[in-house]
């Protein structure tokens, strides 16, 4: 669906859609409705940008275990298999 055809929403409803939108888990035409609202609402736009920034920071906490050795306990369990 194109944004133009999406339903109009106010800031109160937009607020409810932000979390799922930022998680890329929005349902139905919520994405288009929110994006249409963001086109003309500075405050909600700033909120979404902030939530995206916050999520990107959390995503960066993903650990790299490629150089991590297995603990002796885990190694023992696998050897027993």
């Amino acid at each position: 669906m194109s944004k133009d055809k999406a339903r109009d929403i106010d800031c109160q409803e937009a607020l409810k859609l932000v979390a799922a939108y930022v998680d890329k888990q929005a349902e139905g035409d919520d994405t288009e409705a929110l994006e249409k609202h963001l086109d003309s609402c500075r405050h909600c736009f700033d909120r979404v940008e902030f939530e995206k920034l916050f999520k990107n920071r959390l995503r960066a906490l993903k650990v790299d275990v490629s150089s991590m050795n297995l603990s002796p306990k885990v190694r023992q369990i696998l050897e027993d298999l």
């Binding site: 906490l61 993903k62 650990v63 790299d64 275990v65 490629s66 991590m68 297995l70 885990v74 696998l78 298999l81």
Partner: peptide, 15 residues
């Protein structure tokens, strides 16, 4: 079953 998922388990465990 376990071997391919071991890295994922370690990673999520650390997180």
């Amino acid at each position: 079953i376990i071997l391919p998922i071991l890295d994922d388990l370690q990673r999520v465990g650390m997180e």
